[in-house]
Amino acid sequence: MKKIDAMMSWKEVPLGCHVDRPGSTTDFLTGDWRSQRPVLDKEKCIYCGFCWIFCPEGCYQDQGPEAKVFVADLNYCKGCGICAYECPKQAITMVVEEV
């Protein structure tokens, strides 16, 4: 018997393969595509929000006025490095993911 790598039977596929639950794409954790991860030096960070604005995946979260820092959600960060490139204070370093 051939091993089957399917999410569901064809009989269970919703009509037209439509998705009726908005935001369900977050069920898919895409962080494991990453080969490098952003590491923030909080001493250098001025809380400007460039990383948050430029992140193409929207995975930076504002930690609030007290923490005064943005943190990347590594469940979705694909390690593109745009945040590190755009950071005006070079506070973000891309570090190779070790398995």
Binding site: A6, W10, V13, H18, V19, D20
Partner: peptide, 24 residues
Amino acid sequence: AKPISMGMFGIPEIYFEAKKATDE
């Protein structure tokens, strides 16, 4: 009022089943 998404991504684990459903 009742949002759905049409024409979504179909990863290899669902594309085949989606096509089979259309054929059926």
